[in-house]
Deep mutational scan, measured.
Amino acid sequence: KTVEVNGVKYDFDNPEQAREMAERIAKSLGLQVRLEGDTFKIE
């Protein structure tokens, strides 16, 4: 899975870890996480 923030992509081998990281980043920035294919987009 991939986490994308402001056009910057971070790859994770563990999908659960990617989801947790995406949620943590989104919460700290006051944004939403949206799953698009294999990418968690933070917008």
Rank of each mutant, 00 (worst) to 15 (best):
D11R: 14
Q32A: 12
G37H: 05
A22T: 00
E23I: 12
R24G: 05
Q17G: 06
I25M: 09
V5D: 03
D11G: 10
D13H: 08
A22Q: 00
G37N: 10
K1R: 13
M21A: 12
I25L: 11
Q32D: 08
E4K: 05
A26N: 01
L31W: 10
K41V: 15
E4P: 03
G30I: 00
G30F: 01
K27S: 09
L35Q: 09
D38A: 03
T39E: 07
Y10L: 10
V5G: 01
E4R: 06
K9N: 06
V5E: 02
R34V: 12
V5T: 02
L31T: 06
V33G: 01
R19H: 06
Q17P: 02
E23M: 11
T2V: 12
G30Y: 00
G7F: 05
N14Y: 09
Q17F: 08
T39F: 05
F12K: 00
E23L: 10
I42F: 10
E16A: 13
M21Q: 07
N6G: 12
R34T: 12
G7Q: 02
K9E: 05
V8W: 09
L35W: 09
K41F: 15
E20S: 10
K27A: 12
N14V: 07
P15Y: 13
D11H: 15
G7A: 02
F40P: 05
F40N: 05
D38W: 01
R34W: 08
A18T: 01
Y10T: 07
V8Y: 10
I25D: 01
S28G: 07
I25V: 09
V3A: 01
E36F: 07
I42A: 02
P15H: 13
R19M: 07
D38C: 14
A26C: 14
N14C: 15
G7E: 01
E20Y: 07
P15D: 08
G7C: 14
F12S: 00
R19I: 06
V8A: 07
T2G: 05
M21I: 10
V5N: 02
K9Q: 09
K27T: 10
P15G: 08
M21T: 09
E4C: 15
G37I: 02
K27M: 09
G37M: 03
R24Q: 08
A26Y: 02
R34Y: 11
D13T: 10
V8G: 03
K41G: 02
M21V: 13
R34F: 11
L29H: 09
K9P: 04
Q17M: 12
Q32G: 07
K27W: 04
E20D: 09
D13C: 15
L31E: 04
K9F: 10
I42N: 03
D38G: 09
Y10C: 15
K41Y: 15
E4I: 13
E43I: 13
E43Q: 09
V8P: 01
V3R: 02
T2M: 09
N14D: 13
A22H: 00
V5I: 13
T2A: 12
G7Y: 03
V3D: 01
Q32T: 14
L35R: 06
T39S: 09
V33W: 12
N6D: 09
Q17S: 10
A18I: 05
E23G: 06
K41R: 09
R34L: 08
F12Y: 09
N14G: 07
L31K: 05
R19P: 00
R19S: 04
K9V: 11
T2F: 14
A22L: 06
Y10G: 01
E16W: 11
E23A: 08
R24S: 10
E4M: 13
A26Q: 02
M21N: 05
V33Q: 00
V33K: 00
T2E: 04
K27P: 00
A18M: 04
R34E: 04
N14A: 07
K41I: 15
L29D: 02
Q32V: 14
F40H: 07
V3K: 01
V33T: 03
A26S: 06
A18C: 13
T39M: 09
E43C: 15
V5Y: 14
D38F: 04
N14I: 07
N14T: 14
D11S: 14
V3I: 10
T39R: 06
E16C: 15
Y10S: 03
V33N: 00
P15V: 11
G7W: 02
V33R: 00
E20V: 12
I42R: 00
K1N: 10
F12I: 04
G7K: 05
L31S: 07
N6F: 15
E16D: 11
T39P: 00
M21S: 04
N6E: 07
R24A: 11
M21R: 04
G7N: 05
L35K: 08
